[in-house]
Amino acid sequence: MSIISVKNLSKSYNGETVLNIPQLEIEAGKSFGLVGNNGAGKTTLYRCLLDLIQPDQGEVLLNGVPVAKDESWKNFTGSFIDEGFLIDYLTADEYFKFIAKLHDISQEDLAQGLKKYEEFFKGEILGRKKYIRDLSKGNQKKVGIVGALIGNPSILILDEPFANLDPSTQFQLRDQLKTLDEQTDITMLISSHDLGHVTEFCQRIVILDHGQLVKDIHTTSETLKELEDFFVNKVRDAAPSSEASATVTPTEK
């Protein structure tokens, strides 16, 4: 049974279609990668999945729950989109406590659960007298990602989790997610510009382009090459026209 199910989804702004997905089914327990250039519609799709915007057509079912009609999907879905979803006037500890409370998790269990991330946090997050708004971008991201994992969600949705992190932390995060994927039956949905990271642990990768699903790949050893070819060809195909416009634009503006 598919745990995430997208049916007939479309959204347009000012007559311009930014998302058009006839069908997308994601199986439970699989980790799923979403790649695409800027403006391909990744964030719009994410926002539709999390009921943050209203699609013009179609619906999203998380674990059978239609997100637009029933709020219970929040009980089993952890997500982090960007820093705007952090409560920036709380300290990281207060933020975690708040989320734990929402999921009826005791303080002891929370402390126990956070222990796993001590290394990931590098001592820069827990027990510090600093509001989230005063943390660095990378640390804010860590708070958001770990916050999304509180309450043992069965679905985890992360938008660009690797962006803004230093190289060591990127690998650390990748390993964390990999372990999570292996040890639990969580379904992960991860978007990234880093093709290497997604091919590393996503069993299925989808390319979104101009709001449409253009490629659906089950990861093999060839996948990285296939992805790279797709994006390189995109630039090459567009090359003659973009070269011409590149010389004209500066004088036009």
């Binding site: 999390l50 009921d51 943050l52 709020e71 929040k74 009980n75 997500s79 989109i81 705007g84 979803f85 952090l86 409560i87 920036d88 708040f98 989320i99 929402l102 999921h103 309450g151």
Partner: peptide, 14 residues
Amino acid sequence: LLSVQHYLLQRVKK
């Protein structure tokens, strides 16, 4: 309205 954006994805009723 933006000041409550961060509650939207949490387990809090709309």
